[in-house]
């Protein structure tokens, strides 16, 4: 079975690109068995979504038409 280090690589990679079927399955199996990695997985996702929200209401809106 995959190590925590390898599993954490896949947790990170899936935020950047879809995992292959094998990668996805082996990550899921690892996460189901390893509480620490499951925690890490949700935290990396939190960081990812927080970064997106940092800009969510900051994109320069095309409001030129009002003036």
């Amino acid at each position: 079975m995959k190590s925590c280090k390898q599993a954490s690589f896949l947790m990170s990679k899936k935020l950047d690109t879809p995992l292959s079927f094998i990668e996805s399955i082996s990550l899921k199996i690892h996460l189901a068995m390893c509480k620490s990695c499951a925690e890490c997985d949700s935290q990396l996702l939190s960081i990812h979504t927080l970064c997106q929200k940092r800009h969510i209401d900051t994109s320069i809106k095309d409001t030129d038409t009002t003036q």
């Binding site: 190590s3 925590c4 939190s46």
Partner: peptide
């Protein structure tokens, strides 16, 4: 962060985060 078997070292094990959703 990881030991020789590539499992989490004791001092690097992720702790639970409370309510990370509203932090932005």
């Amino acid at each position: 962060m990881f030991n020789a078997k590539e499992h989490w070292n004791a001092d690097a094990i992720p702790s639970h985060w409370h309510n990370p959703e509203d932090l932005h």
